[in-house]
């Protein structure tokens, strides 16, 4: 099959689209995983002490200050900082809007505690001691968040792998069909090659060379298109008129949407896999057809 023929061009286009979808999926899973890992790393060394508000705000403030000083004396604590009312309200702003400042006074006061990355204190013991010394105090170590993030990340990774498998299966089916069609349309050539003593391996190799060129060409086009999408992703979201909340959520989910060098290696791997799939599928297809012709 000539690469420049209509059938050859159509096949290249279809494999390019397959490679594009595979790269898009792999790239997105990579971004989510990278973003989640960074998030998990951050929150693993951070806990929040929550203090239920008292009747009077001044009481809550003095309690928060005392708790902060107590926590700072503990070993394994790098720093502790009481979040101001405005800081707490800004955390709620994406969900509750600008009126959240009023509500923040009714919510627990928060102390952001930075843990030592290697010498972590016994948080259960610390919570028990805080409870014995101070009223209405609790520690949130974000474990529930971490579990949820891991679950979501794993779900996306599994979904991504499933999509990659489907793309791989579709690509294989397309190449099998193209190999049969190429063998049929080049029947006379195959016959002459047989008559001059070509082995099945030689004939399969001739087809392999064709599908290798096709795989590389389609892979590069597909991967380059996916890279272009990743490059314009932040602009695209903004252009489509997303709000602050969407932007914040998207950033939390996939970071800035740009791939780093490892991300590009992932895309390169996809190109290699797609090319190998093209080459090996055509090879086994030719062997099978020639075997059946005997």
């Amino acid at each position: 099959m000539q690469a420049d023929s209509v059938a050859g061009k159509s096949l290249t286009l279809v494999i390019s689209i397959m490679c594009f979808l595979a790269c898009l999926t792999a790239g997105t899973v990579y971004l989510i995983n990278k973003s989640a890992s960074a998030w998990l790393r951050n929150i693993a060394t951070e806990v929040t002490v929550q203090i239920e508000p008292a009747e009077r705000m001044e009481d809550t403030d003095s309690l928060a200050k005392a708790v902060k000083e107590y926590v700072e004396r503990e070993s394994g604590i790098v720093s502790a900082r009481v979040l101001s009312i405005s800081e707490s309200s800004s955390l709620l702003e994406p969900w509750l809007g600008v009126n959240s400042k009023l509500l923040a006074t009714q919510l627990p006061r928060l102390i952001a505690v930075q843990l030592h990355p290697r010498i972590s204190p016994d948080l259960r013991d610390l919570e028990a001691r805080l409870g014995a010394h101070f009223p209405r105090v609790a520690i949130d170590d974000h474990r529930q968040w971490q579990d949820q993030i891991r679950t979501v990340t794993h779900s996306f990774a599994l979904g991504g792998i499933a999509i990659l498998f489907l793309v791989g299966a579709a690509t294989t089916a397309i190449i099998i069909s193209a190999t049969y069609s190429a063998m049929a349309s080049n029947h006379e050539i195959v016959e002459v090659l047989n008559f001059v003593g070509a082995t099945d391996r030689f004939i399969a190799h001739e087809f392999e060379k064709h599908f290798l060129r096709l795989g590389v060409r389609a892979g590069v086009v597909g991967a380059a298109s996916a890279m272009a999408v990743f490059s314009v992703m932040p602009l695209l979201v903004e252009f489509l008129g997303s709000g602050t909340l969407t932007n914040a959520e998207l950033k939390r989910f996939i970071g800035n949407g740009m791939l780093d060098s490892y991300g590009y290696i992932v895309l390169l791997m996809i190109v290699i896999i797609i090319t190998l799939l093209c080459v090996l599928t055509s090879r086994f297809g030719v062997f099978r057809i020639l075997h059946n012709q005997l």
């Binding site: 047989n194 008559f195 001059v196 003593g197 082995t199 099945d200 391996r201 020639l290 075997h291 005997l294």
Partner: peptide, 14 residues
């Protein structure tokens, strides 16, 4: 067999 058949054909000119 197929491979031997191919090698045999190399000894024949057609």
């Amino acid at each position: 067999r197929a491979t031997a058949r191919a090698r045999l054909r190399r000894r024949i000119g057609i």
